[in-house]
Design a protein around this nucleic acid. Sequence first.
DNA 1: ACGGGTGTAACG
DNA 2: TCGTTACAC
Length: 632
Amino acid sequence: MPIPRPDPQGDRVIAHVDMDCFYVQVEQRRQPKLRGLPTAVVQYNDWKGGGLIAVSYEARKFGVKRSMRGDEAEMVCPGIQLVQVPVARDKADLNVYRSAGSEVVSILSTKGRCERASIDEVYLDLTDAAESMLSEVPPEALEDIDKAALKSHVLGLSDDEDPEKNVRGWLCRSDALRQDKLLACGAIIVAQLRGDVLKETEFTCSAGIAHNKMLAKLASGMNKPAQQTIVPSSAVKELLASLPVKKMKQLGGKLGTSLQNDLEVNTVGDLLKFPEEKLQELYGFNTGTWLRNVARGICGDEVKGRVLPKSHGCGKTFPGPKALKTSASVKHWLDQLCEELSERIQLDLDQNKRVAHTLTLHARAFKAGDVEPHNKFPSKSCPLRYSAIKVQEDAKRLFDSGLREFLGSHSKSWGVTSLAVSASKILDTPGTSSILRFFQGKSFSLATSDVSYDEFCNDGPSSSIGCQSYALPECEENQEVFAHEESSKEPDKPSQDRINDDFCRQNRKQKVTGSGSILRFFSGINTSINQASNETEIQAQSSENEIHEGQDMRNPRQKHAIDERGMDGRISHQHTNGSWNFNADEIDHSVVDELPPEIQQEVQGWLRSSKRAKTARKGSNIFHYFSSGENP
DNA sequence: ACGGGTGTAACG
DNA sequence: TCGTTACAC
């Protein structure tokens, strides 16, 4: 039963969680002897000791900074531990950090809508969870509060000799504003999540808890490492009054510099002096409105329920003398990059059943005698064909086409200083229930079962999830490949061909021969989907999504313009979250270990809770697994 | 000719 | 839609 909320938008509870020097923590977990030592992660140590990309807090005390060279770091911090980024295909390989990031997301996505903002940061919308807590077990009624929550920093709260007692007082105030009580609940939830992350991954993180993304992000960086900061509304004005504009997200670059140099706006508070119209005049309507809101701590950006990246890319630079000057060397490196990219999109397909539709090539280059080159190497894209060799061929063609355009009619010699390929327009493959997506992501070699694809899709209890046929819309070549593959049945094909099989499976009637116990787990859930979550709820969710799609066509700044001003802050629809509920009795606990890692931890946390009704909230991985059949 | 490799988003 | 530009970590 959804809890009615008078003003969902104004009272949202948003958290930003930021891993502390993440790459360093990943390396310290791999090599525990590095814990507590001044450490930095470095790539390419052949030139001046390599470039630092992450620095531990111990090393920061010595003045070691990102963007220093390894040599430089050793100067200011003798004995610093420099760990190299793994290398594959002669380029940096960030996979271990990506998967460590996924571990974290799978834990952080359990309590509300979760947006992966980068490899080591997420935003959470904890509004629903905080409201539930407030109505069921408000902090003021709580006997003992999580020690970690008591260590929160509360902006605007007067200092005290006993900070924990002080914070406890704030968290538990019975006469507090409802807004503040919600933040207090949010902070308790976040403290617990951070504890879960530490326990399950050994990583520490910091967090900000506020009423919007902007303030949450600002706060997460205020007390690091391994701490959290709460921003009550009452503290916003004072906070922003003295905050240098450059500290605000999006104002760290040219716009921030222009505010300083052209308007003498040095703090966010200084922005208040400028009428909205003036800012719109100077920076355009949308940016002007956005700035006006920033000055007031207003930010209506939603936390998007997205835990997976929207694109995959890989690239490499070839600085100075390393510039590539022959077609053959370009081909060599493009081949390396395309191989890595192919692996990653293949993994995305296997694990997440998502297909990338666009391949893009980026490059930077110079022409032999050019002093101040005034044309840039154009980026080019084309439909992405799923096989490593084709990606390589296509990337090369894109490069050649770009190069011709870059050179024009002149045939000077040239050099390429960077190459990158990326895969974007990634869509969920529809046409299969999430349960099947799970089975497709696993090997089918365990004990057989006589449950067929048909039964799962159409005849089984979950028929409302349904299945549709699927074909790539714009890439005919792929369909030919699939048609061809459909007739071939060799068991052990090279990996680049496996993807085609996957596509074929989705179009055929697939016999599922999964493990009996896993099947039992899902059968239980399957049954309870129908029992505990009714179809109208799912439908409501689905039509709500359509509204969202429409809105997402507008850019965020336009959204600010309309949401914050035109509608006077009354934005209500987006927080009526859909969720699926499961009865704890119907879940087979004994097979949790066999679940895919992305949802395993989430399910474990879920089973640990004492509630009988388990809820998979929109944005959580479990929800994702069980709802993606209705995605576009 | 070095902060490299990735990622998101606005804008024309 | 595509390609460029900006910004962030």
